[in-house]
């Protein structure tokens, strides 16, 4: 089998292969470590179900923000009847005490950089 212009085409194929297999060799021999967010001690339930919070907490936070700032509604009543302050700093972070151990775990893993922390203050970590 004769290949014509092999001197150009074969390196071309190799370069293309290298580019397309980028994820494989980038991770070659590495073990993928899934994130381990630290859950608050002593508290069983969040404001909504775990699955919802895993996938859609950003939506919830955004909706809350709208409600608080624009509609002046500030308390969330869970189906259980428990009331929560709709506030990142004065609500969420009261249970989830550490941004690094909770938020950043998955965010770093998935390269998500929310701009919450541009304004909202993260709890000071215990050193």
């Amino acid at each position: 089998m004769k290949i014509y212009d092999g001197r150009k085409i074969i390196p071309g194929i190799l370069i293309a292969a290298l580019i397309f297999s980028f994820p494989f060799w980038l991770n070659f021999g590495k073990a993928a470590v899934p994130p381990k967010p630290r859950l608050p001690k002593g508290v069983k339930n969040c404001v909504k179900g775990t699955m919802y919070m895993r996938t859609s907490h950003m939506q919830l936070l955004n909706d809350w923000r709208n409600l608080v700032v624009r509609k002046n509604v500030r308390i969330f009543v869970a189906p259980t009847g428990k009331e929560y302050a709709m506030s990142l700093q004065n609500g969420c972070l009261k249970c989830h005490e550490s941004k690094a151990d909770f938020c950043d775990q998955c965010h770093t893993y998935l390269d998500v950089k929310p701009f919450c922390w541009d304004c909202h203050l993260a709890p000071k970590e215990n050193k």
């Binding site: 993928a32 895993r54 996938t55 859609s56």
Partner: peptide, 18 residues
Amino acid sequence: FRVDIVKVKELAMSLVTL
């Protein structure tokens, strides 16, 4: 209709690490 992307990445990583 969000899915759990942490798990998506776990799957993806498992695929690329063979």
